[in-house]
Design a protein around this nucleic acid. Sequence first.
RNA 1: GCUCCCGUAGUGAAAUGGAUAUCAUGCCUGCCUUCGAAGCAGUUGUUGGGGGUUCGAAUCCCUCCGGGAGCACCA
Length: 608
Amino acid sequence: MIRETIEQAIRAALEELGAPEVSFAVERPGDMAHGDYATNVALVAAKKLGKNPREVAEAIREKLSRAANHSSEKSSDLLPAEGQTFLQNGSLRFVDKVEIAGPGFINFYLTDKAVNAAIEESITAGLAWGSAARLKERWLIEHTSPNPNKAMHIGHLRNNITGMAIANIAAVSGVEVIRDCIDNNRGIAIAKLMWGYLKFARRDGATDKDVAYWFAHQDEWNNPQTLGMRPDRFVDQLYVQGSEDYEHHTESASTVRAMVVAWETGDSVVRALWQTVLDYSYAGQAMTLERLGNRWDHVWHEHEHYQDGKDLVEAGLQKGIFKKADNGVAVTDLAAFNLPDTVLMKSDGTSLYITQDLALTRLKREKFHPDRLFWVIGPEQSLALKQLFACCEQLGIGHFDDYTHISYGYMSLKGEGKMSSRKGTVIYIDDVLDAVKDEVRTILSAREVSLRDPEQVAEQVAIGAVKFGILKAGRTTDIAFDAAAAVDLRGDTGPYLQYTCVRARSVLARAHTEGIDPSLDTSAVAVPLGHVLRQYPEVVSLAFVELEPSRIASYLLELAAAFNSWYAQVHIMDGTSAAAHKLALTQATAQTIENGLALLGIPVPEEM
RNA sequence: GCUCCCGUAGUGAAAUGGAUAUCAUGCCUGCCUUCGAAGCAGUUGUUGGGGGUUCGAAUCCCUCCGGGAGCACCA
């Protein structure tokens, strides 16, 4: 709001100076000493106007103050009235001073009143402040989509928390968000899992039983309870065993392929086995997803639509959009999109991922009529997704630009490189959470404070540490995950933010018992903390435009640092009339941290 | 071979083409008889190499070196 007003005024000044088409930026300077806003307009316009940048800056400042003298006296002294400039008596109405600095930057310093008033909005706005640029759009955001043949590891974690955070940020920015995922619950991978279970989960260790025998003697097979395992780890292990057996024994491989066919024809015994292993998998995933606070509005199950894509490919072939290669496969023709071609359907007429995704994308549009669709998926799928988007456009299923791949960086292991289940270097989400939780328990037990529910606090702090550790990095930055560093709860961490929030609340609680209420004084001198506090809505807006949760993470660290630094210097309840205002700043800090962490999917414990 | 991504203090990261390249951690040093020390304050140390564009480059272009991913019947 303030920034837009400054932009408009500069635009008007540029027109007067005869350089209306110059593009410039009004942004937050990296250093607070350079004011609340800074613009490079003079640097950009200098060449066009044939003057040096500082002369141009001076001329723009001159125009701004000239406009001020013509403005109305009766409007608010904080913000300009509709259609009016924002200057008054030579200074911006909500700007204290305008300085020209460095090579020709124009720096704007807000008045104390403007800063304090902006904080007040931040306090009352809460989670949804009602974005001025409210998008009347519906977005479908597909994220996480865990494969039911594996336990979720930290790669899935990055997908989940990134997708959830972006969905939260979009929702609070006025978009109607639908979160969905795809359950790839059929095909050769699931058959390998079924085979692993059939062959390697027998209680007596025998490995020669077939599916019919299993159906009649199900109690002879192990289950997660009898082994004392989590169901997802039970499944994960059997899938690895089944896959290895598939690769090393040709007769096992043909049995597995036969199971795929039997499943497709609806063989009731195979379907029963299928349901049994999937149920273990879902139960295990649910345990992890619940800890993470995951939520979907809709889950697509592959077995419900996987056949439909073939019709789309056939239709495309008939229209000449796709072509048939000599070897019988259906192939794309993506020269118009400047993309390499890919196979759409195998020569035996069976489907591939892209075949099903064509059908699913059509299904998504038919069911939800979204304006835009997003896929939160790793970078290795980048080309495949572009090909999908292009094929959809060719088939008349929306437009290429309706579709966005939200990519993210790889999770590697520090010193080990890529995770590998074969090398045993996969790090499971729950193992990380449990390790961090143990560390939190150790810290808690060493402290004096007695907690009502230490177990819940440990869980919330562990979640905060792990999620924040990933979200503070840029979305596309590769992360070398360091399990040892993950349990460090000091410094730029989630627990640091949680602690800051809890401590601020503790002061507020004490004030409440002493009968002192927070009350913002707009005439109070704005401290650096206040200048940081008021930026929250702008930061969320930036995070939304860039689909970049780390913007919020970085901001919260800056805010917490500003608060803690301030807190160490001042005595809040000092018995003077200033106490209420300082409490208001404390309350605004606690509220803003809580709101920001909520967007990142991180809870704040009541105490810690 | 072709395409895409990445290379920033010892380590992990930040920086919309902008001002003195930030922050954390690590090492070292102070601060709890005022509201929570998971805190605060101080100290140390950085853009892979070479060209180019620009008033200005970690950022854009070229090239070399190093790492990762993808490239038609895998999921």
